[in-house]
Design a protein around this nucleic acid. Structure first.
Lengths: 253, 253
DNA sequence: GCAAAAGTGTTGCACTTACACCCATGG
DNA sequence: CCATGGGTGTAAGTGCAACACTTTTGC
């Protein structure tokens, strides 16, 4: 197809603008809901063909990658700017770069080639409802995951891909303990899993015995009570005890 | 940190060169080995500080992404150019973009910002040893996976990540059937899995009953014989029968 | 005592593991 | 008739789902 014989050369090497988009989840324990952070572009920046209405044009929070930063550090600073929390789990999701994919970036980059590296983030924090996102030119708001509106371009696809990854990670790796409080009760943990994975992911008592049998939940000796009912034991995630399970297929379900 | 209040603006939006690197595996059934395709840069192009010796400077096959193509289509044309086969499985792996990561691209892009989207490929073909890679300016050769040399930059990390992903996909999804011949015997399938996953992944008879119980291997009624021994039944992967299992956690192990 | 929340125990079923064994073919 | 490769069967052990039950607290 190309008349070049050097596999390194291609038709027309292009200059790309590289951006990151983040699917940012948080679990609202008090309201039992999974939340996702979305931004609404100021109308002056909206370029979509279909955006004639006054309805906000929701999109994933994003930023361009600067000359001196990596995509991951760009994602981290985006998270810090939008949520002001450092208690989070972050992982790369997927890179999208169709030639005709529009840049969500305004003004500049119009017509320029754009590539988006997407990230999955899960925020912790003891009172998620207090995580009021920073409002700047671009309006940010937490949305209930099950009720996300239609987003620009292919971003609903990205958000669903992020959710699928979140579920997988929660089931097969201990990311929950990275963002949960230092000590927690088993029913708190169960509630957390239930909100993300859905009501019927497991029976409470089976969840309980499975996790305790794994042996990396350490009884702190402390108890906590919330009004009526038997006080609950506080557990701590024991990193050392978990180490042997690292990289092994482990099921929390 | 930045004095900008628009989360979309960053210190210095950079122009990137975007490339794809491919971890290309194939299973050599006759020699029972997992092979990976590597290229050796012509010496005129070598820029590594440590490359003073005459030893070939092995790297993953790669190419720049052109102005009118997506990273995936760039990866596909790279695969076609290097291996001349269309019987393959392809999936995106990870995007690397550290600021100080060198571009493996020669000449051009010296000092320019470079981003690499890596892909995992698994090639089929009935006689893998016939898959003589196309030799161009850049020498290409199949290497035994367990004996890969040290590659440039972080590419050994990428190749190992690719292998981990390959194992996972093989265990939890039916990618093998995408590249295996239309009909195959169960011992051929077992041998294929054994080469990739290692000797002790499963007992043959258990592998057998598990796969047959799943119900998407269809008996073609045909038999094949290789000299002595009982003739083997030829099976076909039944896509329709597999459909219900799609997206479900399925274990082949 | 009673409701609420936490925590324990039991039972049946399904699946995995590790083998031993039988079948069909070529020489 | 035996070596070779294909294919079947089974008994012990493991894990999990479902559900009933006991314990500890506040009121």
């Amino acid at each position: 197809m190309s008349n070049s014989h050097d596999i390194r050369s291609v038709p027309t090497p292009a200059g790309f603008q590289v951006g990151v988009d983040a699917v940012i989840f948080t679990v609202d324990m008090s309201a039992s809901r999974l939340l996702v952070l979305l931004g609404a572009a100021s109308h002056q920046f909206v370029e979509t063909a279909t955006a004639a209405s006054d309805a906000p044009n929701w999109h994933l929070p994003g930023t361009l990658v600067g000359a001196s930063e990596s995509p991951e550090s760009a994602a981290r600073s985006l998270l810090w700017k939008t949520t002001q929390t450092k208690n989070l789990y972050l992982e790369q999701l997927y890179t999208f770069g169709e030639p005709n994919r529009h840049s969500p970036q305004a003004g500049q980059g119009h017509g320029a080639r754009y590539l988006s590296v997407s990230y999955l983030a899960l925020l912790g924090g003891n009172q998620p409802q207090a995580l009021t996102p920073v409002n700047q030119d671009c309006q940010l708001a937490w949305h209930i995951f099950s009720e996300v509106p239609t987003l620009t371009f292919d971003q609903n696809k990205i958000i669903n891909y992020g959710y699928a990854r979140l579920r997988n990670k929660l089931e097969y790796s201990p990311i929950a303990f990275q963002i949960l409080p230092e000590s927690f009760t088993l029913s708190y943990l169960y509630q957390f899993y239930t909100i993300v994975l859905g009501e019927n992911f497991s029976d409470y008592s089976n969840f309980r015995s499975r996790l305790l049998k794994l042996g990396f939940l350490q009884d702190t000796g402390l108890k906590t009570s919330r009004g009526a009912g038997r006080p609950a034991t506080l557990y701590r995630f024991d990193r050392a005890a978990f180490a042997p399970y690292k990289d092994k297929p482990l099921v929390f379900v």
